[in-house]
């Protein structure tokens, strides 16, 4: 086995007194595509958001590319320097449920922003790169549009292009199609599928069972903040072993498979 790209050990997260994640271990190999399933409130989004430190884990450790993040702090929790986190985030791209496009910038402005501000790429080169990413998601002809003029599906594709432009080693998708009208889901899933075919490493929180089944190399089912069941798509989605997984799938299957 090669060295994992991402290695998570003993991850805990609580908000106040409420435990949201407990004791999660996960190693992600390069090229893996992991779909994360679970009911709302199960902690699956929080888990994803801990991986690029949108939420700071309460305990546990995360290694990226063999390097342990943060340093030992008091009472067991690790402390993370701002600089380390900004560097981590350059290597880990995130696509949000609500797109979170920058409304005061055009589509291409959104895609160029990270290149210009974070990586310091020259304007012409950034524009060229951004244009290439927009073409990849099929929006080259919408480059000069402001987000307010784009459909939900188009917005999410711009958001994907924005993440891709940073050359991330790992992509995190947080329910990328949940805020979309049903007829717009397909175009976004199409783009994600093409990224899968390129062999990119990704973690995807989703409710699209069928998509998870066909695209993922591994599926995790999270319940009550723990990995309840994990395995190949066939094992987890087709032949779940545990009762809660079965119940969850039964509720969702009729809509998606």
């Amino acid at each position: 086995m090669t060295q994992p790209l991402l290695n998570i050990t003993g991850l805990h997260k609580s908000f106040g007194t409420q435990q949201v994640l407990r004791n999660i271990d996960l190693a992600v190999q390069p090229g893996e595509r992991i779909a994360i399933l679970g009911a709302s409130g199960s902690g699956k989004s929080t888990f994803l958001r801990c991986l690029n430190f949108m939420e700071t884990p309460s305990a546990g450790s995360i290694e990226l590319g063999g390097r342990m993040l943060g340093s030992e702090g008091r009472n067991g929790a690790r402390v993370y320097a701002e600089k380390e986190l900004t560097q981590l985030r350059q290597r880990v791209g995130m696509v949000f449920q609500q797109f979170n496009l920058f409304p005061h910038m055009t589509a291409i402005g959104n895609v160029m922003e990270g290149l210009r501000t974070v990586k310091g790429v020259a304007p012409a080169a950034a524009r060229e790169r951004a244009m290439a990413e927009l073409s990849r998601v099929g929006l080259a002809d919408h480059a000069e549009q402001y987000p307010a003029r784009l459909s939900g599906g188009q917005k999410q594709r711009v958001a994907i292009a924005r993440a891709l432009a940073m050359d991330p080693e790992l992509l995190l998708f947080d329910e990328p199609t949940s805020a979309l009208d049903p007829e717009l889901v397909g175009e976004v899933l199409g783009v994600i599928r093409s990224l899968a075919e390129e062999g990119r490493t990704m973690l995807l929180v989703t409710h699209e069972l069928g998509f998870a089944y066909h695209v993922a190399t591994r599926v995790l089912f999270i319940a009550d903040g723990e990995i309840h069941e994990a395995g190949t798509p066939d094992e987890v989605v087709k032949h779940p072993q545990r009762e809660r997984t079965r119940a969850f799938l039964a509720r969702h299957r009729e809509f998606s498979l």
Partner: peptide, 27 residues
């Protein structure tokens, strides 16, 4: 300004002051 704007800019690897200057303040 919505929290998502902070998150999106931070997720790109911006520092807090870059997020403030480039994303939050203009809006």
């Amino acid at each position: 300004v919505e929290r998502g704007q902070w998150e999106a800019s931070r997720a790109l690897g911006m520092t807090p002051s870059q997020s403030m200057r480039r994303i939050i303040l203009p809006q």
